[in-house]
Design a protein around this nucleic acid. Sequence first.
DNA 1: CTGAAAGCGCTTACAG
DNA 2: CTGAAAGCGCTTACAG
Lengths: 357, 357
Amino acid sequence: MKQRRVTFSDIATAAGVSRATVSLVLHGSPLIAAETRARVEQQLQTQGYVYNRAAADLRRRRSSSVAMVINDLSNPFFAEFAAGVDEALGATGYVTLLGSTGESVERQQKVLTSLMEHDPAGIILSPAEGSDSRRLLSVIGAHTPTLVFNRELPHAQKIVPHWDFLALDNRHGARLATKHLLQLGHRRIAFFGGHADSSSCSERRKGYREALAAAGIVAEPQWLVESAPTRLEAATQTSALFIRDPVPTAAVCYNDAVALGLMLGLAARGRRPGYDFAVTGFDNIPEADVSMPPLTTVATDPRACGRRAAECVLARIHDSDVPVTRMITPVQLVVRASTCPPLRPSGRKPRAEPIEP
Amino acid sequence: MKQRRVTFSDIATAAGVSRATVSLVLHGSPLIAAETRARVEQQLQTQGYVYNRAAADLRRRRSSSVAMVINDLSNPFFAEFAAGVDEALGATGYVTLLGSTGESVERQQKVLTSLMEHDPAGIILSPAEGSDSRRLLSVIGAHTPTLVFNRELPHAQKIVPHWDFLALDNRHGARLATKHLLQLGHRRIAFFGGHADSSSCSERRKGYREALAAAGIVAEPQWLVESAPTRLEAATQTSALFIRDPVPTAAVCYNDAVALGLMLGLAARGRRPGYDFAVTGFDNIPEADVSMPPLTTVATDPRACGRRAAECVLARIHDSDVPVTRMITPVQLVVRASTCPPLRPSGRKPRAEPIEP
DNA sequence: CTGAAAGCGCTTACAG
DNA sequence: CTGAAAGCGCTTACAG
């Protein structure tokens, strides 16, 4: 059933021209006589010719694919990012080679090794947690333009200073969320969830600390609680917030999943998020809008990030001399019902108070 | 910066052998003398050789890629499916060519055309709504093994009888949900949301009707309400359920998004889902678990589907004579708080009643 | 055990 | 305006 594909030779023979002529016709060369062109195009049509880009790429020593390696496709944030990348690549004639790693560093090495054999013109990498810059460099090599998304690689500046980097403005996002809570009157604000050694978490913690500092507040150690960035783990860790005074009245969460988990954990302890405890998230996943109460969170635009990532890599593919990019995409606070003013001992809810920056 | 890649010739020269020998070493041929092998491997190592699979594929006239075209990557259901496909393909040395269509039939044609130029060994297609079998066939051609996922193409049996098909057991899932509501005592059950002309919707409606029929009930026309499969549209359509008696006391929804929208719509009309109106979904998306009330739904395993799809296509790539598959993957009811018994005029909640099948 | 040679489907100066 | 020829990086009978 699988028969030989139609090739330039078939077209050339049938149209009574050489293969070179077929190639010129296909690329719309103005040299070709109109009559010849018509004959060739006729044949391309009737024989159902399909261009073999791999052969052309081989001959021209270039590549029309870009590899996209994603740590967690099942996370809507990364899925949207992937869709954005594919959209922008497709629009410029590149094809996307997909590799998903499921947050496994080992799979990441394997996947990249396999993708490299397909000679991608560039790489967009959303690295698995715990990625090692040196190992990545050893499989990617020095000559394939690479953009790292979302997570800063350890010692990136030393080991892969020539790779582009694109991330959310984690610090600013966390600052916005924290400021919002301060403005509502909170003074004891926790930072809840995430792994402190991940770049996105440490950036967010920085923003949180900065906003607190601007209000003259220093975070108590027990206000910094780590957890895996999942709902379940977050729910489990909730108790850690209440083991020692001063107990927080609000929490800036690492992301929405953690925030939703915290809300479950609070409910289980008889606390009502959005009424006697304020919670913020990060990402603005669809659930944020339908949770009870709806979640105040920091909105990002992962699809736009994907498009930007693709454009950045394409730029470097076409001109390796563009300066290395370290892009930070803006984020935005979305206020919903999960953030309330603190409940005073009297039970009376205070009005929001303005804060000096 | 982008320099010529290391090739067989470089290795051959350095190791003092021919390119043929390098090839044999690379493929672990037992013919090669141990001493020669060592010399070559040494060079492969030190020069950082990377295999060029495209060149090899060209020469061997085969392909080591599979195209995966997805209608909506931002839907976690399809993102999980994609992850499953990539996982299974990667495990067998194939690379995944990604194309996302955003539910646009036009983009689908473009994306497929572009992907075909990369000569995929097979295609996994989750078609955009409104896909035309004939147009798809014209770009894919008769000789590339193709599996259609999730949505049946119109007249598939006539036009593309040689394509494999994999879908959820939509009918059984809807039957399960409907039966569950019947067992709770409901008699007036709506089928809410989806486009009636889509294959998944019509299958689900079939299952719904079957379950009703088994209980001796015929659906009233006003119990069948269409809507786009989104939360927003569903919320808007809610009123359609209550314009004419007999008004339903429960609804089997096309999917979870629709069910969540319906719950919002109900709340807006002063009805409390899970208390005076029962709702079921389909998909078991993460939100189902955290909505208020948590959503009773039909759970699927999209990642496993993806793996199965990949295996099926690989089987056909390696042996074009395997019989055409029409696979239906099992689904499972997950009961949560959104399904309650009907509220009787008295306001008293009846106990669940057993139903004769 | 190893090499010379032909060829996969294309492109691109170079002649004419 | 068109064709002959060389070559991209590999593979694979075929000699020896």
